[in-house]
Simulated scan of single mutants.
Amino acid sequence: MSEKRASRGARMAAWLVAAALAGCGGEPAGEGGVAVAGKVSLGGEPVEEGTVTLIPLDGAGSPVTAPIRGGAFETTRADGPSPGKHRVEVRAFASASDAATARERARAEAAVKGMMFGKSPSDLGAPAESATARVNVAPERYNARSELTAEIPAAASHTLEFTLSK
């Protein structure tokens, strides 16, 4: 009986070593992605706040999301996308008070309440401005239904620019 346990323990140890050597399917150890920097405009104006998401089309690597601030975004090599063709999703955020329709405002305000368990920010000890409802003002053709693509070369860095119409 103790021989079976020892054998089972040896198999388990061998399996764990193999799993550790194989990794999680991401980039090989010591290698990173590509540092990407760029600019995003919508309707001729820089996107003040939003996100750019790069989704590998070949299934290699993981999606990468970078925040947009003042019309610009960037990633480092450590958190950058893998080389290859990527589907691009762009979201541009505006406060709910700036939203184009009452329906968008209501949806954003409901989402904030849901995230805060139906409580107001002050009920949770947070400043009121921390729960400003935000809505995506970029058309769906640039995010949920995006057909935008970007080719990321096998290089240390790359620059992208997205000029989007409303």
Rank of each mutant, 00 (worst) to 15 (best):
F73L: 05
G84M: 00
V34D: 04
A72I: 00
V36D: 09
D58F: 05
T65D: 07
T76E: 07
V64T: 00
G118N: 10
S97K: 12
V52H: 05
A60N: 11
G118K: 06
A92R: 12
A92M: 03
M116V: 07
L124D: 06
R105Q: 01
V36S: 09
I55F: 02
I68P: 01
A94C: 14
E49F: 15
V112T: 10
E89G: 02
G84L: 03
S82L: 11
V88T: 03
H86N: 10
D98R: 15
E104D: 09
P83I: 09
D58S: 12
T75L: 05
E74Q: 15
I55R: 10
V47C: 04
M115G: 11
G44T: 12
P56Y: 10
G30S: 08
F93T: 05
A92E: 02
D123V: 03
T51E: 14
V52I: 12
R87V: 00
V52K: 06
R69Q: 04
E27Y: 14
L42V: 07
S41I: 04
D79T: 07
E31I: 09
K113Q: 11
G32A: 04
R77W: 08
G30C: 05
V36G: 08
A110N: 09
F93W: 14
G118E: 11
M116E: 01
P46N: 04
A29F: 15
F117Y: 14
E48A: 15
E49H: 12
V34R: 08
G38F: 07
A99M: 03
K119Q: 10
D123N: 06
G32P: 11
S41P: 12
S82Q: 12
G59V: 03
G118R: 13
R107Y: 04
G70A: 06
A100T: 13
G25N: 07
R87C: 00
K113H: 09
A29M: 07
P83M: 12
V90Q: 03
S41A: 04
I68A: 02
V40S: 00
E89Q: 04
